[in-house]
Simulated assay, not measured.
Amino acid sequence: MPISSTRSSASRIPLLDILKGLACALIVGHHLVFYGPMSDVAYPLAPDLMDWLFAYGRMAVQVFLVLGGYLAASTLAPQGVARFDSPLQQVLRRFVRLSTPYLAALMFNLLAAELARYGMDDGSVPAEPSLPQLLAHVFLLQDLLGFEALSAGVWYVAIDFQLFVLAVAVLSLARFLSVRWKAPWLAPVLVLLGACASLFYFNLMPELDTWGVYFAGAYGMGMLAFWAGHSTRPYRWLVALATLGLATLALDFRGRIAVALVTALALGVLQASGGARHWSPMPALQRLGQMSYSVFLVHFPVCLLVNALFNQFWPTQPWANAAGMVIALALSLRAGQWLYQHVETRLVSMPMALRMQGGLLVATGLVLLGLKAL
């Protein structure tokens, strides 16, 4: 898959953020329907919409998986060859970027859950965490160690980190082998083989859904879409990618893989099309996409608090609870905007991130102790 040097420096496509914004809105909608009593009370007002969000909203995660692979390829190996020197440095940098806003949102979630217990008795409220459970969440190991999640969506952050580590490892191996074998095309081949292994084997085993290999097919398709869109013959490679996806679906049709395939092909076509790089028809949705990670992190505790409030004062009124769901969505966007502006976009070093995280842990512990003393 020869890479065109003129395309490898292409500017960011605004439509990427629009895709992220749409996916973010769907996931928040899914969680609003899935968790808390408000959706149960408001259900008779819009049963078809809520049933659809309940069943299909979570598939928007596939868009983020594909975009994650696409952006990883653009950062780590835009011309199909690893351009970083230290794999460990890349992994640590990614951990800092993910964990700084993640931990801030997680601490907020602990406080929100503590307050929500006073307003409702519902299965969506996480139980009080043990110290090992909290530490497992801090290091993104909660699912691998068998701990209950403290917030909706934290599993995805752990999976994203696993996939990034896997991508760094594969690209590093490809660079090492390509020097010895004189094969600069080796990285896309290894990514393709890994994606095939996931799509045709690992993704058929639901018990592996806490491991990155289960989702590596979607992530790998995102990486391949980036390289295809930058190649000298983009549409030939995109047809090959479509053939791989269709073969996967013929073996065992999975809606989530179909969504991932369509997303990957759309990204490849957009990248290959010069005009699409600058077309931004929905600026509001683009802004949501830019802060989608922060919204994704913080929306669950916001929805917990709104659910608890409306359960206290309007426990049986459908229209009031429907309004509560809209309010929860609006407050989630506002909270996500604050987290994005004041935490996610701050450039921090590893020592500074560790100090911030340590301070958050101590401050949250003191506040929780104060709440229990009341």
Rank of each mutant, 00 (worst) to 15 (best):
64 F>D: 02
231 S>D: 08
308 A>L: 07
316 T>K: 09
304 L>D: 04
40 D>V: 05
80 G>L: 00
13 I>R: 06
366 L>G: 07
272 A>E: 08
90 Q>S: 10
119 G>Y: 12
53 L>G: 04
325 M>W: 05
25 A>W: 15
352 M>E: 10
73 A>C: 14
343 V>K: 02
38 M>N: 07
215 F>T: 00
75 T>A: 13
272 A>F: 12
255 G>L: 14
51 D>S: 04
264 A>V: 01
104 A>E: 02
364 T>S: 14
347 L>W: 03
239 V>C: 13
132 P>Q: 12
348 V>Y: 07
214 Y>H: 13
144 L>H: 12
143 D>Y: 15
124 S>I: 11
270 L>W: 09
40 D>F: 04
66 V>S: 00
214 Y>E: 09
304 L>R: 10
262 V>S: 01
358 G>Y: 00
99 S>F: 07
82 A>V: 00
13 I>M: 13
227 W>L: 12
30 H>S: 08
323 A>K: 06
54 F>L: 09
146 G>R: 15
367 V>P: 03
370 G>Q: 12
73 A>T: 09
288 L>N: 06
50 M>W: 03
216 A>Q: 11
6 T>N: 09
269 V>T: 09
164 F>T: 10
314 W>E: 03
249 L>T: 09
164 F>W: 15
24 C>I: 14
39 S>V: 06
134 L>R: 04
172 S>M: 10
206 P>C: 08
174 A>K: 02
127 A>N: 04
256 R>L: 05
276 A>R: 14
173 L>R: 04
124 S>K: 06
150 L>Y: 10
339 L>V: 03
353 A>W: 07
241 L>D: 00
197 A>V: 12
364 T>P: 10
181 W>T: 06
21 G>T: 05
345 T>M: 06
55 A>W: 03
278 H>A: 07
286 Q>A: 09
237 W>F: 15
229 G>E: 05
337 Q>S: 06
193 L>P: 01
14 P>G: 09
216 A>L: 15
24 C>F: 13
275 G>L: 15
211 W>S: 06
280 S>H: 08
71 L>N: 10
23 A>L: 01
243 T>I: 15
261 L>T: 00
329 L>A: 11
11 S>G: 13
47 P>C: 03
201 Y>M: 09
363 A>S: 13
338 W>Y: 07
234 P>G: 02
248 T>V: 12
245 G>R: 13
337 Q>W: 12
153 G>F: 00
30 H>P: 08
181 W>S: 03
83 R>Q: 13
51 D>N: 05
187 A>M: 01
85 D>F: 15
73 A>F: 08
27 I>W: 02
3 I>M: 09
254 R>E: 01
344 E>F: 05
107 M>C: 14
290 Q>I: 10
46 A>I: 05
198 S>Q: 13
98 L>G: 00
217 G>V: 12
258 A>Y: 07
107 M>E: 05
355 R>W: 11
295 V>A: 11
300 F>C: 05
71 L>S: 13
81 V>S: 09
27 I>D: 02
354 L>P: 01
155 W>R: 10
309 L>F: 15
176 F>W: 12
50 M>F: 07
130 S>D: 08
340 Y>C: 04
238 L>P: 00
261 L>I: 01
237 W>M: 11
113 A>M: 03
153 G>I: 02
87 P>R: 13
